[in-house]
Design a protein around this nucleic acid. Structure first.
Length: 422
RNA sequence: GGAGAGGUGGCUGAGUGGUUGAAAGCGCUCCCCUGCUAAGGGAGUAUGUGGUAAUCCCGCAUCGAGGGUUCGAAUCCCUCCCUCUCCGCCA
């Protein structure tokens, strides 16, 4: 959520900024909502004041006639008050709903652009493998030894789910363990959180009210499956005031993520790139506003270190204005190379939300004069399924085996190569 | 799931309809005095929001959340959430 005072005073500038994201800020509606709110609030509060004063006088009035008169007046005010208060409440709600649907403003250094194609490559790292044989995609590789099975997952659930078996399932687990260990080593605190969250948490991080259709909702309760660990982990401190000495706070969490993928029919139907359920190791930071740019770079580097250590070829891009998400002010994507698609695919998305989420969640930092909203930053470190798929594809051999990256060998119980053809 | 108890400021803990935004104690901050294995005195110490650009000033709201009764609610009523104890069930 944006600072309403900023909107009141700088809406020209903000409007221009939001246009780059493809959002048209309706200042007419805003101004009428805000002025209506102001009028009603002033009316309500002055009536309330009168009512409070009269109530005290009634209590102290000894003269019965005067007391009766005051009681009569007080009753009248009370009825009027109820009426204006109701109007104020609905005005405030309307204004709030309006504000909740406004995206975050962009950082100055975010490049202009309409869509994905305008994202800017910052650099490419690692060497793209050359194959002297006809390569298989990760699904084909996984199916060689029934390590990836889509028939069983359809029987159990439906499409866009997967069953992993044997060495592939173990590699999946190894990746989780490895990533957690690296991030803990780098100063992140491991945290385990609920996979079902309430509505307020989703409003807090910005998934609601605008993106309800992307979520799985539990039918018998007002709860949702998490689309990312960002939601429960960020909300750990909702409504809390943090001491500045304890910042930055760094969390790492491994959770499954559930996404309805509404509107992505026919997209990435092959393999495990786009699933309703996938695992992810997520990094979340709560930082002082002054440090957030710097901390975003640090978090992105921490996510990159996994790709580097796994020897996967990847590139770092900065998302252009039109591709930057609703709540983000600036986002770096890390994209890993998929030989079968001859292209880079997103494997991590690292964003600085500034005070957009913390204002919604009411997470503040204790200051001597006025408490301020902290900044939140998060990013994947990394998406497990896609990392698994990338390893299978990039490390395959002509014999249909897959070389295990060195850093994972111990996590695989010493296995250096998966012989999938057997 | 059944029975009972309870949710008050950073913490402990008073308060069952009227200057209570909230006693008291602890903690913390500042000042003064004294000076020595210490202590004493004083002041301050929640959050949000509006009037305003504003540290000051004034108003309004907040005693788990949301409704209700009343001129007036931390105090009474209803719904929900949470915590604790006992029973049941269960990984």
């Amino acid at each position: 959520m944006l600072d309403i005072n900023l909107l009141r005073n700088n809406f020209k500038e903000i409007k221009k900024n939001l246009q780059k994201k493809g959002f048209e800020f309706d200042e007419k509606t805003f101004e009428s909502l805000d002025s209506e709110r102001k009028r009603l609030q002033i009316d309500t509060e002055s009536l309330q004041e009168k009512s409070n004063i009269l109530a005290k006088e009634v209590a102290q009035e000894k003269d019965q006639d005067l007391k009766d008169q005051k009681l009569k007046d007080a009753k009248k005010i009370s009825t009027d008050l109820k009426e204006v208060k109701a109007k104020l409440d609905s005005a405030l709600e309307e204004l709030n709903n309006f504000l909740l649907e406004i995206p975050n403003v962009l950082s100055e250094d975010v490049p202009d652009g309409k869509s994905e194609e305008n994202n800017q490559i910052i650099y490419e790292k690692g060497s793209i493998p050359e194959f002297s044989f006809k390569i298989k995609d990760h699904q084909e590789l996984g199916e060689l030894s029934n390590g990836i099975n889509f028939e069983e997952s359809v029987t159990i659930a439906k499409s866009r789910f997967v069953v992993l078996r044997k060495q592939i399932a173990k590699l999946h687990r190894a990746l989780v363990q490895y990533m957690l260990d690296v991030h803990i080593e780098n100063g992140y605190e491991e945290i385990y959180v609920p996979y079902l969250v309430n509505k307020n948490s989703l409003v807090g991080t910005g998934q609601l009210p605008k993106f309800e259709e992307d979520l799985f909702k539990i039918s018998n309760e007002e709860m949702y499956l998490i689309p990312t660990a960002e939601v429960p982990v960020s909300n750990v401190y909702r409504n809390k005031i943090l001491n500045s000495e304890e910042l930055p706070i760094n969390f790492v969490a491994h959770t499954p993520c559930f996404r309805s993928e509404a509107g992505s029919y026919g997209k990435d139907t092959k393999g495990i790139i786009r699933q309703h359920q996938f695992d992810k190791v997520e990094l979340v930071k709560f930082v002082h506003p002054e440090d957030s740019e710097n901390e975003l770079d640090k978090l992105t580097k921490d996510a990159e270190s996994i790709l580097n250590n796994l020897n996967l070829p990847y590139r770092k891009v900065i998302l252009c204005s039109g591709d930057t998400g609703f709540a983000s002010s600036k986002t770096f994507d890390l994209e890993v190379w998929f030989p079968s698609q001859k292209t880079y695919r997103e494997i991590s998305s690292c964003s600085n939300f500034r005070d957009f989420q913390s204002r919604r969640m009411k997470i503040r930092i204790k200051q001597s004069k006025e408490n301020i909203f902290c900044h939140t930053i998060n990013g994947s470190g990394l998406a497990i399924g896609r990392t698994l798929a990338a390893i299978l594809e990039n490390n395959q051999t002509e014999q249909g085996s897959v070389i295990i990256p060195e850093v994972l060998v111990n996590y695989m119980g010493g296995t250096k190569e998966l012989n999938l053809s057997r």
